[in-house]
Design a protein around this nucleic acid. Structure first.
Lengths: 243, 243
DNA sequence: GCAGTAAATATTGCATTCAAAATTTTCTGA
DNA sequence: TCAGAAAATTTTGAATGCAATATTTACTGC
């Protein structure tokens, strides 16, 4: 099992390098949390499978303590379920969960839009306008990845303009959980839905320019609801995400 | 060190009895999490004070492992901050934090109202009506605690009627964090604000009856914004909560 | 064969241990 | 007396140990 040396963990499998700046590397717990969340959200432990504690420890090159701490946090985030004396199980999102999360995100973005109108600067609006035009040209060129990126950037800017860290944190958290589904939804974007989305974005930009908070809020909600429909269609139709 | 008997831990200080049914007693971690969160949110560790790990362990009668697991979760909830190698610090809510949380709650309730209108049953509306009238009579009698209770119940029912567990979980989480401030806000409710709140509640009920989602959403948001103003006034005016 | 049970194994939850910080206390020399 | 350094102490972060519970495997009687 364990030979003597490896405590130093410089040889730990794939721990150091690829971690980038993304995870809180200050503590093992922080790093393991980030990596494990990604690992699970990315679907590597698909299905309601038992989370193999020991195995993950070896994989991350840490002891069970920080791993288990990370699991508690993931449980509180709803990423895994904790069964008494039976460990953690991956909580796979069923259609209803996705529906709920999309609605919640829609509500958060609607809120962000409303708040943003209260304090967004002309410069920020200009930046969003710029991104909007960029996105539009991606649309004309049928460049999905580019479009997706610009789209995300706009939504992020709106959330940032809301000047509410608690909201931003909540938004990021949920966005992380459904990012795979969102991406899938965009991949399968049908031509007509795409055009519709562009038109909605026109309305978003317009409301933002006028600082029409309530209106923007409503448009954003509907916009995300429509995206949800597309995502759910994509989810059920082709294949259940992981075959 | 360990003689045979004491593992049973029936003599653990103040662990068993007062735990009530509130916390997830299935695991020590779950119980400690609930109790520690309460302990902190109730203000027993006020100010940005260092969280005394050892002391809390004794107090809860557990080892550091479950306590530290709980701390990680509380950190992810924003209740404490984790300083590398320097432990956890109570994160005290400044005025801005409270403003942010109130706005976020307002957004969540606005969402709940909108969703509720999509699927609330006549029975549920009737129950809310009943509570509304109850609340009104508390208002007439100037019975603050009773009013507060009925008020909370109405808001909870609206969230429940949204049929969105993710939303409900988020709502409960944030509500827990600011419950002390909310209570304070209600205690200090000025006569005129109270009457205003009642009128807003009339409008809420009316919109709910008509299943006017967008309208209800807007009323709820404004209602909570007004409550926020009252809360912040109360917060800054009298004294900073803990002397 | 195979349902049902008992032994063997693995996993879990928590306590304990230990090295590396951080903090506090004690010393030192103006 | 007191600023600054050194030593002692405490606290932290993480690994390891251990009893209790689950799970798997091996066995028994049909």
């Amino acid at each position: 099992m364990s030979d003597a040396a490896p405590l130093i963990r410089e040889d730990a499998p794939a721990t150091g390098p690829q971690t980038g700046a993304k995870f809180n590397g200050a503590s093992l717990h922080g790093e393991v949390l980030g990596r494990l969340r990604d690992y699970i959200v990315e679907g590597h432990l698909s299905d309601g499978a038992r989370v193999p504690e020991r195995q993950l420890c070896e994989m991350f090159g840490v002891s069970r303590t920080p791993l288990r701490e990370a699991l508690k946090v993931l449980a509180s985030e709803g990423v895994v379920d904790l069964l008494p004396n039976r460990g953690a199980r991956v909580r796979t999102l069923n259609e209803r969960d996705i529906h709920e999360l999309f609605d919640l995100m829609a509500g958060l973005e609607a809120l962000a839009g409303r708040l943003a109108c209260e304090s967004i600067t002309d410069e920020e609006v200009a930046e969003i306008e710029r991104l909007h035009h960029e996105m539009y040209s991606f649309y004309l060129r049928r460049d999905m990845p580019g479009y997706f990126e610009a789209n995300q950037a706009i939504h992020r800017l709106i959330v940032a303009a809301a000047r509410n860290n608690a909201l931003a944190a909540a938004y990021d958290g949920y966005a992380g959980r459904i990012r795979r589904i969102r991406y899938g939804a965009n991949l399968a974007r049908k031509r007509d839905r795409w055009g519709e989305a562009m038109r909605e974005h026109e309305a978003i930009l317009d409301a933002l320019r006028r600082r029409a908070g309530v209106e923007l809020s409503d448009i954003l909600f509907i916009h995300l609801r429509n995206k949800q429909v597309a995502a759910l269609e994509q989810m059920t139709e082709p294949r259940p995400i992981q075959a």
